[in-house]
Amino acid sequence: MLYAIETEGITKKFDEITAVNNVSISVKPGELFGLLGPNGAGKTTLINMLSTMIEPTGGSAKVWDFDVKKDAPHVRQNIGMVFQDTTLDDRLTGRENLDLHGRLYDMDSKHRKKRIEEVLSLVELTDRANAIVKTYSGGMTRRLEIARGLMHHPHVLFLDEPTLGLDPQTRNHIWEYIKVLNKEEGVTIVLTTHYMEEADHLCHRIAIIDHGEIVALDTPEALKNMLGGDVITLELENPDNISRLCEIYKENGCASIVSRKNNDVFITVRDGERQIPHVLELASDAGIPIRSVSLHKPTLDDVFLHFTGRAIRDKEAGETERVGYILRARRK
């Protein structure tokens, strides 16, 4: 088997709207793969199709070599799923939730008991395992859900917005768990997120999805490199020197793109931090005083802007996020 997940032109149409349009992706075994896009881009619809929760209206997809349409039971046995909203039974304890899950996935008693301890210690919930889930904090609930998703040794784990509505500190914790389980359990992970930092920090490869279509797909580094490199911004003491300085940089061929605005010169280069001394040297050789220097490394925000023509933040419906947060809070 070459790929953990392979889709070919997978499509989902709801009445009028095409939520996912002709998406073809391949995810390698052991990969941590991210689907990045604004709310409503079709991320959840896509993983719902891959996890057999909904049927595609077109195209095909294989998960761990099983067809999602024809062989849903096998797909289900091989995947773990952590939904956006909690799906735990909050009247039961953490341990009971895991135990019921193990039973649903047909694990025998001995195996179940051993695995419960393993996944609990993985997400550091051993101490609270016998407490009723209702008493858990948002972060603990999330961790328990991740533990449950791993319970039956799935080959592929889907995480739908794993840190939505969590505070930054908890978010960092969850990130660490995700990294650890990808490495130690060797499980292939597909996560959706609209947080740039999350995708950048965690994923080996990222598919940027917008309006149901993949607009770019590569490693975070490669995606950022597509923009041409880092941007060094120089602020001059005397604006009169701007044109001359731009000429100097162009002649020296040290930058691919040089542009200007007001008192500032923008130089796009690779390895910006290493280029700064050279850039300053050229300016000082020419006797042009510099007031300040700053370096901007491209972020996925810039990448998203580049491919879609707008910032992801513009579309980030604070509404949906807040509702999710309120729902979670209400359940506590």
Binding site: S51, M53, R76, M81, T87, L88, D89, L104, Y105, D106
Partner: peptide, 13 residues
Amino acid sequence: EFGFLKEILIAPV
């Protein structure tokens, strides 16, 4: 409403 149904419906049962 509380989501647990999804946990059951995604299980291979």
